[in-house]
Design a protein around this nucleic acid. Structure first.
Lengths: 245, 245
DNA sequence: TTTGGCATAAGTGTTGACAGTTTGGCGGGG
DNA sequence: CCCCGCCAAACTGTCAACACTTATGCCAAA
């Protein structure tokens, strides 16, 4: 009766719990530094500890929770070092994905993506209050790189973390227009089949995002560990704005 | 009494089982394409299904086993597409790691690594039958990049897979000398603090390894699915030669 | 002979309970 | 007043059993 939406896209409870707990952290229901115990979460979601264990295990796999052998799991703190590490990996993977896309995308896909980008820009800049569509340039581009492994890590692991960081730092809307411009430049490089240029552009683009997040993080130096994790918890999905950088 | 070495480096059974099953696949005890059932493995190792489930889950996480919701897990087939994907990711991550190392390594670390490289080269080329020391240039370099996330993925996930592929394709010893030379060039670029050059060199180096593996894979086009996975299984650790490319 | 459906079997997903370990607090001693 | 050792509560790791899903083999009908 309370929160327990069964997501039909996940066949197993563990998978669904992974998303649910991720959403909980996104929405701020759990806050970084808080401790999440298996039994507590199990009671909260009305399931047994098995699926919860799997979900936490996977959360640990993506580096969102830290845990030593017998200690309880804690949501990773959001400090500069972690952001730096995260972005190092993102630059590596997305730069390569961009180069691959420049080689593997066909003309129709490029024009289609270009059109989608333009449409998203219009809608986004014209009506700022409309949720910026869930069009995500980066995810689309990654998908077009046709590298299952890179797609899985980027889309399944890194991006949820990035969204989390963005939630705590706050994205600045005035950067959107320049971000769109950079996206357009990248696509142009891809259209001219210049893989090196496309990668370089993408790397610079992401480096800018890193710098942005860093300054935003400096404003609120460290996320405080948050008092308790016993909040009734709203299991509703977070309504974060789509990616922008 | 049969295979069940307790590795003290793993505090939980799940972790130990992860390594054990990995070793089993490495040693050829399970062979790609074979199906591994939880109950079977549980009986084989004398534990319950819980830890086995966690181990398989993690194996699935690194892409070594494929699995749809309710079907049994199968060891991933070793085809060209998988190798291509694997190396795309490796180029991305290790290229970046190399650039980071060029920035972050201090002089003493560089000279130390250089000396270790020279020592390994001598021992390896001089006494070909001696196991080439478990000195692994790539792993050392990755460690020096000081990026926990990249290190974890590369050292914990990708490299076990690479060793598996090399086991089935066979490494050619005549490539060792040229590999050493390339390693030396990379280190020289790092010493001169030329991050771009170091990355480029590393990328080319890995691309060569990819081409090598591809031709070796063409010789034996596809690994046959192997008849049964019920072999008594030798749980002894695999004695694979150290990395070389 | 081939094809369709069905019953059995195998296997995974999930659950609740038990054992071992860590952590926090409490009391006694210095 | 501070420090050390002990105790209890909480939590994780592990296990055996139940429910549900999928695959396999057989049998009958066309």
């Amino acid at each position: 009766m309370d929160g327990q939406e069964e997501d039909d896209s996940a066949r197993s409870l563990g998978e669904a719990l992974f998303r649910d707990i991720l959403a909980l952290i996104h929405s701020g229901g759990i806050a970084p530094g808080a401790t999440l115990g298996e039994a507590t979460l199990a009671r909260q979601f009305g399931v047994s500890r098995g699926p919860v264990r799997e979900a936490i295990r996977r959360l640990q796999g993506i580096g969102l929770v830290t845990r030593e052998p017998f200690a309880r799991a804690r949501v990773a703190l959001l400090d500069r070092a972690a952001v730096d590490d995260l972005f190092d990996m993102r630059v590596a993977l997305e730069g390569r994905a961009c180069a691959l896309a420049a080689t593997r995308m066909d003309e129709s896909a490029i024009t289609s993506l270009l059109a989608a980008l333009e449409q998203a820009r219009r809608r986004d800049l014209g009506d700022p209050d409309i949720p910026p569509d869930d069009f995500d340039f980066h995810l689309q581009l990654i998908e077009h790189a046709r590298s299952p492994r890179i797609s899985a890590v980027l889309g399944g692991d890194l991006y949820p973390l990035l969204r989390l960081y963005r939630r705590w730092s706050g994205a600045r809307p005035e950067r959107k227009s320049v971000a769109y411009q950079e996206h357009w430049q990248i696509l142009r490089a891809i259209r001219s089949r210049d893989a090196d240029l496309a990668r370089s552009l993408m790397e610079q683009h992401i480096e800018k995002a890193r710098a942005n997040l860093m300054t935003a993080l400096d404003a609120s130096p460290t996320i405080r560990p948050a008092p308790a994790a016993h909040s009734p918890a709203v299991p509703t999905a977070p309504i974060l704005p789509a990616d922008q950088a």
